[in-house]
Amino acid sequence: MNGAVGSAPRRAFAASAPAAFALAALAVTALMLVGCARQAPYALRNISGLLPPLQFQLTDDNGTPVSEQSYRGDVVLLYFGYSNCPDVCPTTLATLAQALRGLGASASKVRVLFVSVDPQRDSAAVLKRYAAYFGPQVIGLRGPDSELIPLTHRYRVAYHRDPPDRDGNYAVEHSSAVFIFDQRGRVRLLADSGDGAAAISSDLRRLISAG
């Protein structure tokens, strides 16, 4: 008896379920189209929501302890490297410096955080000199592995120090990503060594004006 009463609505539900599903799918697609139509895509890779908000504990190139709070209100570009890096770091930082020059006065709202993955050779003084070479917005940050690993883990990047040669020189494998955070510390864009200064400039300008 109970089964007979229960089965009619169940059948009705089964019949209407695909229709409801199709409607929901249509609605979602329409919403997505509207969302996309509102804004042209960024030139850089959009990674909004894929990584957690900016958070770290390190020491800056003046020897002052800093955290993400120290740069709240600025658009932050987070990059991992080391001052002895022969190729990737200087070219990337030079591109970023060029992109910042392209911003004019609003460049003051941007900070490039150059996090050293080689704190042994990159003392605060070395980092300060190296960062200053690329412009006043570039800040060298350093810290022991116990502070570095939580940060690289958080942004899913790896670094690896090769064994030193006879003269004590060694290379460090590291990421080439520049993670870009908006003024509220949310991850927004990812620039890579292949991205040009013009693309970075135009996207940064958009982020600054939106903030």
Binding site: V157, H160, D162, E173, S175
Partner: peptide, 12 residues
């Protein structure tokens, strides 16, 4: 798959 170059490899 350029994500491994962008995020760094575990060793060289």
């Amino acid at each position: 798959f350029n994500v491994y170059a962008i995020c760094g490899r575990a060793w060289a």
